[in-house]
């Protein structure tokens, strides 16, 4: 859906669900994953529908993703760091040490 304008200059690496993805220092996680053609960032808690970023400026919260172990962070407002581990979120969050209903 999106392709780099000019050369991508990806010099660092982040990991999406364990898969290495080249990233450019200074870009947002959302931009990086859109370039990598991630099919979705999360599935919704209610109907498990896939979502990608919609507004890209922090209003819609559709780009929520797990970043370095912290869930539901806005990928459009977070910059990439070398070695960052990002995970897609599936459905409702699980309660740590318990079960969701």
């Amino acid at each position: 859906m999106f392709t780099p304008i000019g050369s991508a200059e990806a010099t660092i690496t982040i990991f999406l669900d364990g898969r290495p993805i080249p990233a450019r220092a200074g870009e947002t996680i959302a931009a990086c994953l859109m370039r990598a053609a991630a099919p979705y960032f999360r599935t919704t808690p209610v109907t498990s529908s896939p979502r990608l970023p919609f507004c890209m400026i922090g209003h819609c919260f559709d780009c929520l993703i797990e970043i370095d172990g912290v869930g539901s962070r806005q990928a459009c407002l977070s910059q990439v760091c070398d070695g960052m581990r990002v995970r897609t979120q599936e459905g409702p969050a699980a309660i740590v040490g318990g079960q969701t209903q």
């Binding site: 392709t3 780099p4 459009c76």
Partner: peptide, 10 residues
């Protein structure tokens, strides 16, 4: 925003 900050084009 993807053009400006992501240097991406659709």
């Amino acid at each position: 925003t993807l053009i400006k900050a992501g240097r991406l084009q659709p």
